[in-house]
Design a protein around this nucleic acid. Sequence first.
DNA 1: TGAAATGTTGGGGCG
DNA 2: ACGCCCCAACATTTC
Length: 496
Amino acid sequence: MENNVKSGSLVWLRRDLRLEDNKAIEKALNIDNSITLCFVFDKEILNPLLSEPLAIRDSNNLLMDRRISFIYHSLRELDLQLKEMGSLLIVKYGFSSEIIPELVKKLNIKNLVCSSDYEPSAISRDLKIKNIIKENGVNFISVKDQCIFEKKEILSKSNTPYTVFTPYKNSWMKKFFLMGSLDSNYKKKDLSQKILQFTKNENFLLPSFQEMGFSNENSLPLEIKCGSSGARFHLKKFLNIINSYKLNRDFPALSGTSHLSIHLRFGTISIRMLIKEVLGKNQETLTEGSETWLSELVWREFYMQILFNFPHVSKGCFKKHYDSIKWISSDLLFEKWRQGSTGYPIIDAGMRQLNQTGFMHNRLRMLTASFLTKDLGIDWQKGEKYFALKLNDFDLSANNGGWQWAASTGCDAQPYFRIFNPITQSKKFDPEGKYIKKFIPELNNLSSKYIHTPWLAPNHILKEAGIIIGLDYPNPSVEHSSARVSTLKRYNEAKN
DNA sequence: TGAAATGTTGGGGCG
DNA sequence: ACGCCCCAACATTTC
C-alpha cells in the first residue's frame, strides 16, 4: 500500500457542508481525477461540550445539542446526494489531527483539500495536520470559500487591516464591484464523473449520536430546516420579505430577518450564492432592504478579518487598556441573566428565547449583552462564553465581535457611554410586548402600558393580571439609572 | 446600531 | 398691546 502511487483528492468538509458552489470541491476537481469527501466530528471541539455543566441533557444525562443535530442531518442529506452518484460521505468521530492523516494514508490520497478556516484553533489544527501529512508526501491545500474577501485582502491605504467598519465596508464594496462573476465553474455532473465509487463492503457508516456520547437525534426541536435544501428554503422565504428588511429587522416580534445565520455558519449555502441572489443583476438593483442586508454580510466579514488579523480578541479586549475594567463578579446576578429572570421583561424574553430555541433575535443580542456588561457590570467574556454554548449559529468571530461591540471594548465598538436603556429599547422595539409575552407567558395579561415595567404597575392592575411581583415574575435585579452611573465610572477609571 | 442633561425657541395663557 | 411665565418641542452637548 505504502509503495503505491498516491492519487486523488480527499476533500475535508468542515464549515462547507454542501456540494454546490463549494470552492474546495472545485479546487479538487481542477487538480485531480478522483475525489473523496469526508467529515470529522472532532473530539477537540466536542469534548468540552460533553463536560459542560450548563449544556442541556436528557433523562439519561446525555448531551442534547441542536448544532450536532443540524450537522448530522445536513451530512445525511449530503450522503444521500453522494449515494445517488454511487459514492458516499466518509464520516468519522475522533480527533481530526489523528483521523485525517489516517484516512489520507488508508485511501492513498495525494492531495488533502479543504476550505480555509480563520479561527486561531482551526489554524493551529490545520498546520499540525499539514505537517503530519507532508512527511508522507501529501499536499495540504486550503482555499477561500466562506467569505468574499479573507485575511488581508482588504487593507487600508497604509497597508494595514481596517479596524473601523465604515471604511472597511467602502473598500469591500469597491473591490467587490470590480470583481468578476461569482459563478462557480463546475456542475453536479462534473462531480459525479470524478467522485470515487465505493463498493458495498466499505465500512464508512455515519457514527451514531450514542457513539459520540450524545442524546438521540429527535430530542430538541430545531426551528430551522437543515442541509442545502433547508438553506434554499429559508433563502426563498427571505427573498419574499427582503424589501422590508430595513424596516422590520429590529422588531423581534416580526419575522423580519433571514434566519440564514446557521446556514452561513455551517456552509450549507455559499456566501457567493447568497450575495448573487440578494444583488440581483448588479449594484443598481439594490433596494433599501437588500442593501441593509448586504451590509450585515459585510459586518460578518469585517469581524472575520478582525479575528484573523488580531487573534488576541479571542482572549481579551481588542483595546487592551479595557482589560483593566473592574467587573463585578456576582454569580447570583449572572445566574439571573442566564436564566432570564432579571426582572426586565425584554431582557428576560431574549434570554429565554436563547435557552428555549438556541436562537436569539439580533436586537436582543445587543440588548442582553448591553444589560450584562453595562447594567450588571459583569465581564463580557462570561456572556460571550454562554452565547457560544447556546447559539445554534455560534461563530467565534461574529460572537466575539458582537460582544466586544456591546461592551465597548472592541474595534469600532459603540462608545462606552452609549448605554442602552432596557425600558426605552423595549418600548421602542416591542411596543405591544408581543415578543415579551411569547417568551414570558406569565405576563400575558399585562397591558402594553406596563408590560415593559411590571414593577411599576399599580396593585389593582397586577391583581387583575394575576401577577405577584417577586413571586410570578421577579423584581428588577438592578436599577438602571444608578447602574449606568457606576458603569460610566468604572469605564472611565479603566480608560485613564 | 443611545440616552440623559442642558440649551433654545416659540406659541399660548394671562395679568 | 405688551411682557412674563410656562412648557412642549426641538437642538445641542455631554456622558
